[in-house]
């Protein structure tokens, strides 16, 4: 099994999983927070925030990658600041790939969670309030369990998007084997060199397998959550 893929190909698979899981985990809490703010918040600028969150969905990925390069690159204002004060560097690192993937998957994550928040019966939250639970507790013991299926769905979408992200990643952090060469970049590279068809096909199969497994796992988790509601 190990021999089936070359060491370089294995590196790309491992890196892709690391980037995708990091992107998904890092965007989870901000995603829930933004979904709550967009669904429940009543403040000036909510519309603008809504548009900004959804931009990666409609902009060409290359454009997003270019913006990231401008902002988070070595000489970009945010990138220079983070590198100087926190020693966090995004440009041409796997962390940069994770950042690009997180931003591209963010609207999908927020949309899924937001839909489930919209479906929560606010009367249940009122009932919890009359029973003595303050707002934080109401969120933790009533709202959060009720939106769990939406959170799971959002996480899977975010993960799947990250596994497939190509344009923004390659624009922002290039295509460095072992550092920023994720599955799609590796497949692309194989198609550009003579005799690379075998590698491209193998990585394509791996990519399909991971996506199907993620989908299957989300279905399984969603079913478990749903069963909790029906005894």
């Amino acid at each position: 099994m190990i021999d089936w893929l070359s060491p370089e190909e294995w590196t790309a698979v491992r890196l892709s999983l690391k980037v995708a899981l990091t992107a998904m985990a890092a965007s989870l809490i901000p995603g829930i927070a933004i979904a709550l703010i967009l669904e429940r918040g009543r403040f000036w600028g909510r519309q603008a925030l809504d548009v900004i969150v959804h931009l990666p969905l409609v902009l060409p990925p290359v454009v997003v990658g270019y913006f990231l390069l401008l902002g988070f690159g070595k000489r970009g204002p945010i990138g220079a600041f983070l590198a100087e004060h926190f020693d966090i560097v995004f440009s041409f690192r796997w962390t940069g790939a994770a950042l690009a993937c997180a931003i591209m998957g963010f609207p999908l994550l927020v949309r899924a969670i937001r839909l489930s928040i919209e479906a929560v019966d606010r009367k249940l939250e009122d009932a919890a309030g009359t029973l003595g639970a303050n707002r934080v507790w109401v969120f933790l013991v009533v709202t959060l369990p009720l939106i769990l299926p939406g959170i799971i769905a959002g996480m899977v979408l975010s993960f799947a998007k990250a596994m497939g992200e190509f344009g923004a990643t390659i624009t922002f952090v290039s295509n460095i084997p072992g550092e920023t060469q994720t599955l799609p970049s590796a497949i692309y590279t194989f198609t550009q060199i003579p005799g690379g068809e075998g590698g491209a096909m193998r990585l394509t199969l791996v990519s399909i397998a991971i996506s199907v497994a993620a989908l299957w796992m989300s279905e399984w988790m969603a079913r478990r959550v749903r069963r909790r509601f029906l005894a």
């Binding site: 249940l124 009122d126 009932a127 009359t130 029973l131 369990p145 509601f229």
Partner: peptide, 19 residues
Amino acid sequence: PKHKRRIGYIFQEGRLFPH
């Protein structure tokens, strides 16, 4: 606020927590 009132409220639809 309602969570500090210690007033029990029984609603028309019960409003039991489904989870």
